[in-house]
Design a binder for these strands. Structure first.
Lengths: 192, 192
DNA sequence: ATCATTTCTTAACTTAAGTGAACAAGTCGT
DNA sequence: ACGACTTGTTCACTTAAGTTAAGAAATGAT
């Protein structure tokens, strides 16, 4: 499984054997069962998750209702807000498929970054990339209707539609499950 | 005006006189008039903007309609997507008040970062911070109705409601100007 | 295999946003 | 001061999403 991580990293920086060993030594790989809750509301965690295989989801509970706002699949990183803000988490993170992830914390990063300055650069590039992507996604969300957003999702992350329950997809699209169901029926209607 | 920039930077790293001089030497301060278009759709620009005073806005033109997706005010940075993606810009950036901004490009950053490794760290922290903030904003947007979003905006960025035209605010909230006008009337109604 | 739970769909009704148009108020340039 | 353009509001009408509820289908546990 390390290979998947090394391949990912090699897109940003080249790794020496020494660096690979240092990463191995951190013992960051975890195998998690579907349904496992990685982070709960109110918890103070320092852990970031990088998905090597599988899917994790972030959700809020508002007025007793789950509101899913993000899915993280292969090669995606989630650093919960509470890690940087040092406040209790506003949301949950759970595993919606049996998954393999890495679990890291800021201390590990600080240590690795000071030993290998290359990592600092990779972290900056990565978070800048992520920020740029996030901004485009947000813009698209704001400028389109729920129906357009769903059609857009079919184009951009068709896998999600297969692997994720509809009611979780609905809040991801900013609507209610019934609306998504109706909207889907409407689209099929139009095609005929 | 440099002082404003130095104060901002000093929240992240401490600056020596040598470093301050290096920054001065870059000659990055610009004074821009209201209405100036800093970036046009289709353009390939490398410039990032940091607002010291005033307000700039980012907008798309979709089916002949302007869709405003972000405002940047004092102490906020905009690195347009085209800078990192090296593709023509999908959107416009214009100045909606007489403003003072800095204009920088990746070459400057590379140079400064290699001279002063501290800057690399600041850049990472900054973009991580921005990413975290952006994610919270996106989550809030997804989990709330237009009316809640407007009430939220009154709390979080009351200045925007004063300094920005309503029809631009509307698309920022993901709705049409008429809907915002109606929604505002509804809120006033409720208060009485 | 059965029961309970979760997930998804459908329908009727309510509420709010989109649309198109008209008008008033404000701003800008000359 | 004037007209042109921009901005904001209102209204009538259309369309779509929210709500509540019922039931079908799928999933999981024992």
């Amino acid at each position: 499984m390390q290979e998947v991580l090394f391949d990912f990293i090699s897109k940003y920086i080249s790794l020496t054997d020494e660096e690979k060993n240092a990463l191995d030594a951190l013992d960051i790989f975890r195998s998690v069962k579907k349904g496992t809750i990685l982070l709960e509301e109110g918890q103070k965690s320092k852990d970031s998750y990088f998905v090597l295989k599988g899917c994790i989801r972030k959700y809020y509970v508002i007025d007793g209702e789950e509101k899913t706002t993000a899915f993280y699949t292969e090669m995606e990183v989630l650093t919960p807000h509470c890690v940087t803000s040092k406040t209790p988490s506003e949301y949950y993170v759970s595993c919606i498929e049996d998954s393999i992830i890495t679990v890291t914390n800021p201390e590990m990063e600080v240590e690795t970054n000071s030993k290998f300055p290359k990592f600092e650069i990779m972290c900056r590039v990565l978070s800048e990339e992520l920020l740029a992507k996030q901004q485009i996604d947000f813009d698209e969300f704001k400028t389109s209707s729920p129906e357009q957003r769903y059609l857009n999702l079919i184009q951009k992350r068709p896998d999600l539609i297969q692997r994720v329950p509809q009611h979780q997809l609905a809040s991801y699209l900013g609507i209610k499950p019934q609306s998504l169901s109706r909207l889907r029926a409407r689209i099929v209607e139009k095609k005929i």
